[in-house]
Design a protein around this nucleic acid. Structure first.
Lengths: 217, 217
DNA sequence: ACCTGAACACCGTTCAAGT
DNA sequence: ACCTGAACACCGTTCAAGT
């Protein structure tokens, strides 16, 4: 309609950026060839000149999110590096929750993913981990990070907003039927400062403490 | 067509069972009102007399999967009970990977979920955990279990089938570019008996060891 | 070379119509 | 009361047609 919509520039990068914008706004199910096209002022069918199909576009979205994760330098100390990477991954997945479950899913891993994994293993090898124990540490931390992001994204309340108390009021489990749930909620929220977000650091520390112990043992 | 298709019995349970069958066969994106209807020899529109809409059907599928998870008795010892529950959850999610990410996601938790959570907290309270430390243990284990199921479901090779070596041959990272990845793969697979599935027990032990230590400390 | 419009085989959902 | 057929507004994708 408007003369602005006429652009000669339709690139893969631009399409990915538009896809991220649509997904952030309407979730992954809101991403269609037509909706991403509209975001760029173009028909959905035009995208097929730059991406193979929708699956290719989703691959590109997953790779984009993965590249947002901060990766400490190769010579970093293993534990703080694992921590920084985990914290960054969690923030990225909280900002783009539609990406959880896409990250490692695609059959052809992106080059960024291979580089990323190689560096993580590097930290651990430098610290004296064997291949087996490095894999143990890596697998446990990643499963926890992804799972936490998954739990956080599907939680009925939003973290980081102090609405846990509102949530408790809304749910209010019958103490006769669910005594432990009721006790847990009243203890945690009665204390006044509970935040589910803190569970991330606790869980990560559980894992890294055991990993560290297994190294020095 | 056939006279068999005429049935007077179209129940919510039957619809859920048909939905599970379709999802197991074609994934969650294969579940449509029409496809589930066809599974029952009925038009898709007929389902609306027994489920509110597709979202309601998906809620019911999530609840069904959740109920498949084995829950040890209320008086079980906390650590072995947590372990059995985690192992069962993992097996259920491996059998129905389409359910990962649906389990805790729905705004109205099923009664089964509340009962389940209440019992888990009960084990921990009986062992002397505070509300805070019980929540720490619960959150960490669940994030790990869900995340591991997620990783496992998206892995390029199938676990429990010994195809890890085939996978390594297929990927074969360039040792010049990804030295740590190459070393890791050759060390693990050279030893001959690597199975990604074992990482589940290792990671779970990492977490439960730290939890146990925090209890007795 | 790049974008488009029509077409095809699908969706979820509504609703009037059948039994 | 329960099931259906047509209809609506969507999908992904193909392909001939436009520039």
């Amino acid at each position: 309609m408007t003369r602005m919509a006429r652009r000669r520039i339709l690139t893969r990068e631009g399409i990915v950026a538009a896809g991220v914008a649509v997904a952030d706004r309407s979730g992954i199910e809101g991403v269609s060839m037509r909706s991403v096209g509209k975001e760029l002022g173009v028909e959905g069918m035009s995208l097929y000149h730059h991406v193979t199909n929708k699956d290719d576009l989703l691959d590109a979205l997953a790779a984009w999110v993965f590249e947002q994760i901060e990766l400490p330098p190769a010579d970093a100390e293993w534990r703080s590096a694992m921590e920084r990477r985990a914290q960054s991954a969690r923030l990225v997945l909280r900002a783009h929750p539609w990406a959880i479950g896409m990250l490692e899913s695609r059959p052809t891993p992106s080059l960024a993913l291979l580089r990323h994994h190689d560096r993580v293993l590097g930290w651990l090898f430098d610290a004296g981990f064997s291949a087996a124990s490095a894999t143990h540490a890596f697998s446990a931390v990643d499963a926890f990070v992804y799972g936490f992001a998954l739990s956080e994204s599907t939680l009925p309340f939003q973290t980081e907003e102090g609405t846990e108390a509102d949530f408790a009021d809304a749910v209010a489990p019958d103490p006769a039927e669910y005594p432990n749930l009721a006790r847990s909620l009243s203890d945690l929220l009665g204390a006044g400062s509970y935040s589910y977000a803190d569970e991330f650091d606790v869980g990560l520390t559980f894992i890294l403490d055991s990993v560290e112990r297994s190294l020095t043992a």
